[in-house]
Design a protein around this nucleic acid. Structure first.
Lengths: 255, 255
DNA sequence: CGTTAGTTTGACGGCACTCAAAAGTTGTGG
DNA sequence: CCACAACTTTTGAGTGCCGTCAAACTAACG
């Protein structure tokens, strides 16, 4: 199911700044192209949105037609397990790419749903394929893009406690929002507790308990979806596996 | 570190059969090529081996030079965590492809070590890149190959008990060996308990205990590295999440 | 204000980890 | 071929993290 609000080709100048933080920039702005060729390339990139929360970018089983880059907002990619429970694969924030899940076998293997009002760049796959023949350098770029997404998956391999995963998650979201221009330590989570828990492979109850615990420890403040990283340094130590006991021997309100 | 025993270009005829089960066959034998072009393509594929157990195909940090397909034997890919413990990413059996981990950022992100005497096909990356320009159809093939490896990673997302993982692992290894020509229900594991445990994200102790349990339940027989799948059907039900209790209410020696 | 969905908190139990030791396997040299 | 060392695997005992079930609480929306 294609997105509806297509606003046409992206104007070159206005996007150049926004493109700097985007993972697609290697694809859209490859080095070594002549200006004329560059313009033809840019012409294939389309902007879509703003899309409202709840909108599906694509659904599981849809044919592979394009790859997407988030310009603003947040996209959730997920599938359903045998019992019909949602299984969240990831959250795509500003600058991130999605859609490569369908390169093989030509159909999307998950759903992509807008979590908060979002705008995206869309690069039709047939254009990528066509242009790759014309500009071989694109071939490398596409492979590298895929490889990057791929390598991100490998991270989750290490066995981590629920506390570690939560700490890593908060730091990760914050880092990604920060890269997109956020300077404060405070931010708003775009997704529900249930989504986070599914993504981290824990239950919402455990997530809730441990968030409260992190707050009691003085590492974060959390109110609904509003998060404040009070002590990012120690939070990171927790994320890296330093045990709570040796981290908080001297803190008073440690229970 | 490149492999040593290079036996030169592969002869066309002798390999055609072996290539049928190989994941690389889409790359080496793409449809729609002229025979002359096909031959040029084949000429870039080299055979290496046999390599002894313990040999490194490549190490973490090595530059990306080629992708490999296992013709016989078994390769273990792994990295080290912060504390220096081995972290097994996967086992590559006959027909499987490895090396894509280095597409980005141009260096291998893990080690690849021979577990039992192995022979491999090697496709130098610069040849792939060069030929992709000449034969655009290769571009698609490479992407699809990567996508397939990629999608295999996505599977591990679901939360599984240790028993489920072990059952899945045994069935998976057996299925892969069977695809390569094994007809019996009996086979030999190429890797140690410690490697399996690391790969499954559990401890060797838990692995050992649960293997013994599966044997007591009459699902498998296991002696050292020799495995016999006595009851693959029920083993698969276990793997899919059916609880042991409702599966073995009527079995006598169920403790 | 009432209904519903989402979140938090509590009680309890089981699975898998840690620590520890026994048993089995492999490799080496006499 | 045996003896011994080094390593791997198995088995046991005890503990803690996290899941399940249940209930209270909060937020969102008509």
């Amino acid at each position: 199911m294609a997105a509806s609000a297509d606003t046409g080709p992206v104007e070159l100048g206005s996007l150049r700044r926004a493109c700097r933080i985007c993972s697609l920039n290697e694809l859209c702005w490859p080095l070594g192209l002549q200006p004329a060729d560059l313009e033809r390339l840019q012409a294939t990139v389309r902007s879509v949105g703003p899309l409202e929360a709840g909108t599906y970018l694509f659904r599981c089983g849809d044919p592979f037609t394009a790859i997407y880059a988030v310009r603003s907002g947040c996209i959730k990619s997920f599938s359903f397990d045998a019992e019909g429970h949602e299984l969240v694969h990831g959250f795509h924030l500003v600058g991130q790419v999605l859609g490569f899940d369908a390169v093989y076998p030509d159909r999307h293997r998950c759903n992509a749903q807008v979590l908060e009002t979002s705008t995206l760049c869309v690069v039709p796959y047939r254009d990528i394929a066509r242009l790759s023949i014309e500009f071989p350098i694109l071939h490398d770029h596409v492979l590298r893009l895929m490889g990057r997404e791929f390598s991100h998956q490998l991270m989750g391999a290490e066995r981590q406690t629920a506390t570690q995963r939560i700490a890593n998650f908060l730091l990760d979201i914050h880092a990604r929002l920060q890269q997109a221009g956020l300077v404060e330590q405070e931010f708003t989570l775009p997704m529900s507790r249930e989504d986070i828990a599914s993504y981290l492979g824990i239950t919402p109850e455990t997530l809730s308990r441990l968030l409260t615990k992190l707050e009691r420890l003085g590492l974060i403040e959390i109110d609904n979806r509003r998060v404040l990283l009070v002590d990012p340094v120690h939070l990171d130590m927790l994320a890296e596996g330093v045990s709570e006991k040796q981290l908080f021997r001297r803190i008073d309100n440690y229970q």
